[in-house]
Design a protein around this nucleic acid. Structure first.
Lengths: 215, 215
DNA sequence: CGGGATCCGTTACGATACTG
DNA sequence: CAGTATCGTAACGGATCCCG
């Protein structure tokens, strides 16, 4: 077996990059921050070669960042150590929003992309007494749940009952998460509230707090 | 000219990785966060191949993260955009300290490594009225200067006059920056104050504040 | 059918030698 | 000193194949 490539530098940044610095690795972690995912979900969502995904999953498992809760069924999820990559990904997202995107980068990327930015955005302002919101984008759904230990954003259908359910389009979703849209305009023009309209004002207040704090 | 490889995903994280995700790129930026550096300094400090360094410097310049202030003399430095990578690197360092390091990763890595962790550590607690500290490690020196806009950590000899100059060894330096050493023990046992002993108590107070806030 | 493993052409990396 | 040129090796990427 060929030894894994390493910077072999006595530096915490180099050590981190030895584990999460390979191509695709951080994007795989990004998707797993939206909840457990199966092999094919990851492969299709990222559009990467299957041999590479396989290799990365083995490496991430060996490094203790992910695991298979049930060895028989194949769903991967983050370990507690893997969840600690959230702040790295959040800062990368923050830097990435500063960069112009090429017009050819218009693939309808995986919606799991948005889970982590949403969580980091709402975590400081969403008290544990808050309500559960479900966001629908095309055929996909996010459930945003505040808990005493933090906000949990999960991708895919959920059996929890949301107090507010809303539908929006993908472009608006991106702008919301990237902080490039005014909360008032967002709720007024781009958010179709399907259920729980009585919480509309509270949701708007939450959005304002989130973006006011971040921007 | 071959087109640069890109994830081509509509996601801020993927966009960031298209620019700073290549091998060595973040480590080059790390070193430049310690102040301007010349080609050979970077090459020797990182131990990377010269052709790769050349390629990376061209790419980083094209992306607007670094530039040559004087085209004749060859020193590279961060642009304002490049300086915004500080939080990504800081979070990477934070994650890296959680990982055990292989015993073979014992190269006496570049001291520029430590500039960014030191800055992030002291920035929240070092008021602009604070004093200038110079840290000596072997033949190298850091100058830590608080300014109204933040703490500036610079590698290499500096003509500013420090109020306190101290010498320490590399291993202790790492542990200090990684927060694995008690400030009291650090000052008492591992810090040789060469000049400015009258500021010793103030420096200790500063260290306690820095580590108390972070840990 | 989902979850990988294998194969193979192309690209990137890494070490060294070389040049302005 | 600051890079280019070269070349062997390793990683990537796409496709196909295999196995439960």
């Amino acid at each position: 077996m060929p030894e894994k490539r390493s910077y072999r530098l006595l530096c915490p940044i180099a050590r981190a990059l030895d584990v999460i610095g390979d191509r695709w690795t951080l994007l795989i972690l990004r998707d797993l921050h939206a909840g457990p995912a199966r092999y094919q979900e990851l492969q299709e969502g990222l559009g990467m070669a299957t041999n590479l995904l396989s290799t990365r999953l083995v490496e991430l498992t060996a490094a203790g960042l992910i695991h298979k809760p049930n060895p028989g069924r194949s769903a991967y999820e983050l370990t507690p150590l893997g969840r600690l990559t959230d702040r790295v990904l959040w800062e990368l997202a923050g830097f990435g929003t500063l960069l112009e995107h090429e017009p050819d980068q218009l693939e309808p990327a995986n919606l799991r992309t948005m889970a982590l930015p949403l969580r980091m955005l709402f975590e400081p302002v969403w008290p544990s007494s808050g309500f559960v919101v479900r966001l629908l984008v095309k055929d996909d759904a996010f459930t945003i749940t505040p808990t005493p230990s933090g906000v949990v954003v999960e991708y895919g259908p959920s059996d929890t009952t949301a107090q507010l359910t809303a539908r929006l389009d993908y472009a608006t979703f991106l702008e919301l998460a990237e902080g490039r849209i005014d909360p008032n305009e967002f709720v007024a023009q781009h958010l179709e509230i399907i259920d729980g309209a009585e919480h509309r004002a509270e949701f708007l207040r939450l959005l304002r707090a989130a973006f006011g704090q971040h921007v």
